[in-house]
Write a protein that binds this DNA or RNA. Structure first.
Lengths: 183, 183
DNA sequence: ATGTCCATGTAACGGGTTACATGATTGC
DNA sequence: GCAATCATGTAACCCGTTACATGGACAT
């Protein structure tokens, strides 16, 4: 389960609440690792039970008390052990869009084109997001924290997202042309 | 659950056993939808209970009897309904490799490079597979079944896999260079 | 008034992996 | 002799989603 590692990874940079962790994920890891709050809260609880993080409660009124999580030595060890562990296989992917297209050969040409156009619009939207919000978020965090080395990896991973999306768009445009001409 | 759709998709082209379905998946949908036999068998059972497929038993000796699954009218309707349903959002992805790299900024330069080199080797291997086995599998199925229209979509999806892998490799090579020079 | 932000969760369910179980045949 | 292929499955467990629950502050 890599949500645990994601949470430890962020807590290793800064102590924060579950709510804040979710915000950071939405802005950065979103496109290669996401989670709902309803999964984050119980997971943090488990991390605490295993002694990987500690909780500090900050009372608030009008809202539930804040629970600020801090990584422990044990948590840091666990994170490092995972980070160092060699990568021996690629991530198995699941993509229901490619699956649907794969089986769509017998459909009406117009429906296939509609599918492709929909995905194209969504990917173009995402590309913009990488080039604007995600980019400025990465830059902001680097300047705020002064984490230069981390910055290189964050920048690289963001770059991956942008190039992947760009490749997807190019493929879609080509495939739309192919379907129009040959089906 | 899209495994149901995958199974219906293949059964729509040809009646076959769970074991054979797994083989087809391993050769074609593998890189965007995979499953273990231990998931396929119970899923087929559920499909049968819902009247989406029928079973024909072919006795064998020395081996368990073959169970040949055939799609029903109801199953075909269900498949079509799914295929026609508009795509309104991108597939949320999870990639533990990008996640690990994202948090690897503070690691030893040598370890990061080792990770990147490992992934590079794996992706180069996969690229070859797309260009050889997957390509010839697609061509073989098209010529065997004479499914020209399906062939266009299969070819396109395979092409996606090849281009994705190529993009990944290019990104890795660039990132390796960056890490070497700047970290 | 309506919606979004803050801030926490629980419960039920479904999807998916890993381990276990059986056993003959074929190829190295 | 050992591994792979054929051919079926069950059981336990973990991961993740969806729906439900609470409730004040602030903006439109």
């Amino acid at each position: 389960m890599s949500l645990k590692h994601t949470l430890l990874g962020f807590l290793n940079l800064n102590s924060m609440t579950g709510y804040e962790l979710k915000k950071h994920m939405d802005k950065s890891t979103q496109f290669f690792w996401h989670a709902q709050l309803s999964q984050i809260y119980p997971t943090l609880k488990k991390l605490e039970q295993n002694g990987l993080v500690t909780i500090e409660i900050e009372p608030q009124d009008g809202k539930p008390d804040k629970k600020i999580y801090t990584i422990t030595k044990k948590g840091n060890d666990k994170l490092l052990a995972w980070l160092i562990k060699p990568i021996v296989q690629l991530t198995p992917t699941k993509d229901f869009i490619l699956l649907k297209l794969f089986f769509s050969g017998s459909l009406d040409k117009e429906i296939i084109l509609q599918h492709l156009q929909n995905v194209l619009a969504l990917q173009r939207q995402r590309l913009k997001q990488y080039q604007t919000h995600t980019k400025s978020y990465v830059e902001q965090i680097i300047s705020e924290t002064g984490l230069q080395t981390e910055g290189i990896m964050w920048g690289s991973v963001r770059q991956f997202g942008e190039e992947y999306t760009q490749m997807y768009i190019t493929w879609l445009e080509y495939t739309i042309k192919t379907v129009k001409e040959t089906l």
